[in-house]
Design a protein around this nucleic acid. Structure first.
Lengths: 136, 136
DNA sequence: CAATATTGTTATCGGTCATAGCTATCGGGA
DNA sequence: TCCCGATAGCTATGACCGATAACAATATTG
């Protein structure tokens, strides 16, 4: 079948992102995480007392959509909230959350290493800078 | 804010794909198309008498999900169906569909050119091969 | 102090995608 | 030739994601 689409970098970008997302989702699913959960855990870990709004800004997730995401993490006992002032609350990992974050990191690091390994050596170092130019 | 995520090529891939998808969606939206519509029009144009199932296989879209997509294109008068045998039907662009496909191609070509232009010259030629390795 | 911005939240809506199941038809091997 | 597995098209449905609007309470700024 004739298919002109794969010549388009934008199309290849879509397909590559989807293909890799499916694979990572499967691996994180084994420890009960979605990709966004892992992102949130990593960010909270790296920024104790961060607010929900700040997380949303960093990840380009609307405030409104953060609510169920954080609720899941809180209900699972992975994060807790402590009031900063009357309207903000700081987020932090619980001990349990730190364990899960460590597991998630192991999975993500292994996955990313495999991703890079799949890229032919001569293109490998160019991938991240090229992608950065498209969204940063 | 400390953010370890952008170091991950997989994360950059996600963000880049999303950012570019939003932009292309806006431009195609001006002529009433979604991205998948444009993909379908291009493939039907390049493969007259192709079946819905074959399109779905090529684009990794389930048969079931092809139905509303093709219905939209048919209702808009951009494609028509002619029976191949008792259970298959060949798809083809109408004259109107060919016009829309040409408009879509102009938009996509311009967009893809801008995408590539955004990538620093030294990384430019590596992007497509690197992405291909991740999904092909 | 008053006007404005921010935070967290609820509710809702559209789009995408996966799954299951159904009917009818096609095609190949016994 | 006949039968059975594979295929095509379709309906229905449910999960998930992201966008939007609105609101109350609080913080910040001029």
């Amino acid at each position: 079948m004739r298919d002109p689409l794969p010549q388009y970098p934008g199309y290849a970008l879509r397909r590559a992102a989807h293909a890799t997302a499916v694979q990572l989702a499967m691996r994180l699913g084994e420890i009960g995480l979605k990709q966004v959960d892992a992102s949130l855990l990593f960010l909270v870990e790296a920024n104790p007392a961060v607010t929900a709004s700040a997380l949303g800004r960093q990840l380009d997730i609307q405030r409104a959509n953060m609510v169920p995401l954080l609720k899941r993490l809180e209900d699972a006992g992975w994060i807790d909230r402590t009031p900063i002032d009357g309207k903000s609350q700081g987020l932090a990992l619980t001990a349990e959350g730190a364990k899960v974050a460590a597991q998630a990191r192991a999975i993500v690091d292994a996955f990313e290493a495999e991703l890079i390994a799949r890229v032919p050596a001569e293109h490998r170092d160019h991938l991240l800078p090229a992608l950065d130019a498209l969204w940063r």
